[in-house]
Structure formats: structure tokens, C-alpha cells
Design a protein around this nucleic acid. Sequence first.
RNA 1: GCCGAUGUAGUUCAAUGGUAGAACGGGGGACUCAUAAGCCUCAAAAAAUGGUUCAAUUCCAUUCAUCGGCACCA
Length: 481
Amino acid sequence: MSDNFYITTTLPYVNAPAHMGHALEFVRADIIARYKKLLGYEVFFNTGTDEHGQKIYQKALENKQTPQEFVDFYASKFKELLKLLGISPDINFIRTTDENHIKSAQEFWKVCYNNGYIYKKNYQVKYCIGCELEKTDSDLVEGKCPNHPNGELEIRDEENYFFRFSDFQKPLLSFYEKNSNFVIPDFRFKEIKTFIEGGLLDFSISRLKEKMPWGIEVPGDPEHIMYVWFDALVNYVSAIGWPANMEKFNKWQVSTGGMVQYCGKDNLRQQTAMWQAMLMAAKLPNSKTVVIDGFVTGAGGVKMSKSLGNGIDPVKLLEIYGTDAMRYYVARELHPFEDSPLTTEMFKEAYNANLANGLGNLVSRVMKMSETYNVRIGDDLGSIFWNSKVEDLELFNIKKYCDQIWDVDIKSLDEYIQREKPFSKIKVDKEGAEKDVKYLLTHLRGIAFKLQPILPETSVKILQLIKENKTPVAPLFLRKD
RNA sequence: GCCGAUGUAGUUCAAUGGUAGAACGGGGGACUCAUAAGCCUCAAAAAAUGGUUCAAUUCCAUUCAUCGGCACCA
């Protein structure tokens, strides 16, 4: 095992603006990426946009845009969001319309094909004459089109390429067996195991180009294009140079023991089973860990939706509260693995309680005393702090890590001030008060170090204030009413 | 329908086979370094029914409620 680390988010499918779930995933992956860097790892951090497929094609047509114009717009939107979220600027941003990716996806297909895992067969498409649309089984109600329950469904034969997913039941199960922490959290791991144990069907991985041209051509068969997620999943290896730059690929996917992936719970099967089977089919090493996030819901666990008007736009929240407030909320107030409710009211309360009244206020009161009494501490560096692994972060439990900072570290400093009253002591026992403030400064600096992966901007600000021995000119987090 | 999970103060979450912890919000108090912040303090909770046990919120069963999965939707 080397000192390299590869972490990736799932690529958002860009048929709509970013939602809280995207923000959540970007921030959490970024926290882990920053943590690993602080420990001294060389980190490859990947994200990007998934830009092919039917839905995007349709949306583009509706907007009277070319698909390329449409995805260009959203790709730039997502890049802006990364900036607003304070995501590490050296992040790799891959687009599935990138030339390298297209070549890589085609090569990936060829390798799987040559290894015997892709074959062509007739695929029966159900077509509702009333809707003039193809229907999938999940579209149907009791085998009928819900819009035209009296109309007949036509069965149309179509040639598709299939992936031999069924060959991978045993390999996947034995892979899971050997990697007992492959999926985090546990209950998601169980869920996917149960699914695999239930038996696997091969799945279709191509579409007829004449029906929907927006995708990557199947190598050697220009009548077909790859089904969008077959192409999209390959990004995790195309991003690190496969197959053109095998040195790079080995550095990030082989020497690291595999990539670490973040994804939402709706992506469980794709990331932990299908993609792993695809890697096996291409005879490439598997991922190391897949971390599954819950959803951000509206109040009471109700799904966010336009019709309910309970959706939260992360960009709006960022405009009001700023980068680190959003990162704080994602890191600590949303459950690390389960669904969490979110309302603007909840966000404001958490912000006021923990950032304005909590961290921000503590910085002000400590720095005021330090500045007034002219107390200084040495220039100890964070590298000394980040010299060993942090268990909570190794287990991707970012919330637990943050709880320690707020419930213990920050709280105990507020209590310390109250108990020792250096502001009164200074009048009768200068030395004693100075000692108190030194203690406070040292521990505040410790908090700033701990916050480095979580709230990078704030951490820098606090360290700077300590260094200059200044009270903040403006509160770090202004209270919102 | 099948499978899985959840149901704890007003709200969001913890822990635990033996006095149920916290945070936010609410009431009260003393202080003043601080962003009317912080500290102390008070009120406030285990869906229902049965079972196992000396003892259950915790284990089991049933009921009710909510959520998720049940593959071509990314």
C-alpha cells in the first residue's frame, strides 16, 4: 500500500440543476480528500458530469438546444457549484463527452467483449401505441400502460448488446466476503448482498442509434450506442488514464488498493455491483470502498419535490450563509448514512447555534482577551497535529468527528472561560489570567487544526487571527435573524 | 404482495437488559471577555398489545404507522 489515495464522487447526471444531494456528496468526498492530504497522502480526487442518454437528449430538444450546448451549460453550472462549496481546487473534473473518456469507454467495451462478457441478442421492447413511447416494466401498472389501460402494448424486437452480469453472482459474493468493509454502512452492504444472492440477470448495455443518437458509439457497430451508464461508470478509470496511461492508472487504482467511491443510496446497485462486475469483466482491480449517502428530504422525511415546494436550492443557501456554513451543515447536521430532513429553518437554527453562537463567538471572546492582554503563543504547525489517523474519518463518520469538536472541544473552552473568568482575574492576578488565555489560545488553535478538512476557510481565518493576535474585525459567522 | 429498516421530549438525534442523554426551541438565575453570544438551572419523551426475565425503551411475537428495495430509471 502506497501513500496515494484515490477518491471519487458519482458523476451527477446533468438533466437538471444541482440539488442538496449533490452538494452533500461533493462536500463529504472533499472532506475525506483533504483529510488524506493532511495526513501526507498524494490524493487524486475526481468528479465531473454524466452527459449522455435519452433524458438529456430530450431535455435539450425541449430547450431547442443541441445536446452539446445543453450539457455545456450544466457542466459549467456544476463547476461553479464546486467553487461555491469550497471543493479542493485541484479536483479532476471529467465529462463523459470528453474525447479521452469516449476512447476509454470504447476500449473498455472492447476488452469486455473480447473477454466474452458482451453479446448480442434480441430484446423485447414494450411499446404503448397510445403514448407513442416505449415502456419499461416499472412504467406499467398490472402489465398495462397507466395512461392507456385499455390499449394494447405492442412487443417489438430489437437487437441489443447485453452484459453477462449473471456470470458475476459468485465472483461478486466472494469479493464481498473477502472485503468485509467494502460497502459502508453495513445495512447497505447487506442490502446489496441480498440482492445478488437473489440471482442476477444480464442487462442491456446498448441502444439503437437511430432512436437516440446522443451517446458513445459501440466499437465496430455504429448502429448502436452504449447505454448511458455503461459509458458513465467507465469514467472512474478513464479519469486516471486507463488505458492510454497505465502508469497513471497503476498509481491510482492499483497501488492504492482501489478507488474510494461516494454515492447516493439510489446508486447502490450500480456502484457496488454492476460497476464491480464490469471491472472484473475487464480484468481490472475492484474499488476499495463504496460509501453510501442517504437522501436529503423535506420536513418529516418527506421527499423534496417541486409540487410540494419543499425543495432546497443549495446555491441559495450558499448565497445567504456561505461556503463553510454549508460544509458545516453537511458534515454534522445531516446524518452520515441515513436520510435527513432539511428545511431553511433548521439550517438557520443550526447555523446560529453552532457557528454564530458557538464557534464564531468563541473565537471573538478568546481573541479579544488575547489581544487586549497581549498574550501570544508560538507558531506551532498543523503538521504536528496531523501525524496519525483519525478513526472517525477512516470510517467516514464525519458527523462523529465534528461532534467531538463541538460537543467537547468548543464547549469545554466556553466552560473554561466561565469557570476561570480571566476577564476578572486580570485585575488581581495578571499572570494567572495570562496563563488562562494562553491555554485558551492553544486549544483554539487545536480546534482550528481539527477544522481544516471540514471548514478550510474558517480554519485559515482562525489561525491567522491567532498569529496576528487580533480580534476578528467582523464576526466569523454573523448571527442571522 | 414479498423483503428490509424505522417508530425515544415541541423538533432533530443518542445511549442502554437494572435511575433514558444531548442539541435546538421554551421558563428562571448569576455574570460580562464575546455576535443580547456564553455559563448555571427548570419543564418536557420510549406507537400499541402480549411474551421471555428478578428486571425491557433495549430481546421475541403481533398490530398500527412511516420509509426504502423488489433490475434496464439515471
